[in-house]
Amino acid sequence: MIAIVDYGLGNLKSVYAAVKRLGFEAMVTRDHAALEQADKLILPGVGAFGDGMNNLAAFGLREVLSRMVIGEKKPILGICLGAQLFAGESFEFGRHKGLGWIPASVVRLPEQGLPVPHVGWNDLFQKKSSILFDGVEKEDLFYYVHSFYLRPDDSGIVFGESEYGVRFSAVIQQDNIYATQFHPEKSQLAGLKLLDNFLKKS
C-alpha cells in the first residue's frame, strides 16, 4: 500500500491517479494509523514552505513521518515542495525550519533575466546512476513549477540536475529518501516511468 500524505497542499489527485495507473494500491490520507500501514510514502505538494511545515505540524504528521522514514527506513518520495520539506531550513518568505532529514537548505532561484517561478518542461541531467532513472532516457524532459530549490551541503546526494539560470538539484537521494524537484505525475511517460521505478525498486 502506497500512502500519499495529505497535508492540505497541492494536487494530490494527480499523484493518486498516476500511482493507480501504474497498478499500485494507494490512499490519500493524513490519518496516523492508516499511514503506519503503508509500505511506501509520497509527500507531494505545491505551495509555500512555511505553510507546508505548519500544516504538517497542525496534523501531527512530523512525528509519525519521522518515525516511519528515519526510524523504520520506509521509502519516501518527496515531490516539489514535499521534497524541499526534507531540508533543514528554507529561506522562502523568511527563515523556516524543515524536517531536517537531509543536510540541505532551500534557496531561491536567481533572477538572471529569466522569469521566476521556473515553469515548464526542462532537462534532467543524470549525474549518478539511480534506480529512479532505469528506463529514463537522457533526453527525457520533466515538468517543473517552482521558485526555490534544494541546495544540499554535500553534492554527493545529488543524482540529477537541471538548469534554469543556474544549475540546481532536480533529484536527490539519500538512503530511503528520494526527492524530485519536478513533478513526475505531470511529466507524462518519462514521469510515470520514474514514479514506477520508485514504487517497484526503492
Binding site: 494536487n11 489527485k13 494527480s14 491517479a17 498516476a18 495507473r21 505545491v46 515538468y143 513549477v145 505525475e185 505531470k186 511529466s187 507524462q188 511517460l189 514521469g191 510515470l192
Partner: peptide
C-alpha cells in the same frame, strides 16, 4: 482529464469566486 492526462491541466470558464477556483483544483486541475 485529471485522471487520464499526466501533463499539466488548466481549467476555467465561469469561475466567479474562491470556491469555484478551489473546486477546479480539487477536481485535479493544476
Amino acid at each position: 482529464f485529471a485522471e487520464r492526462c499526466f501533463v499539466p491541466l488548466t481549467a476555467g470558464g465561469g469561475v466567479r469566486d474562491i470556491e469555484d477556483f478551489r473546486k477546479l483544483l480539487c477536481l485535479g486541475a493544476d
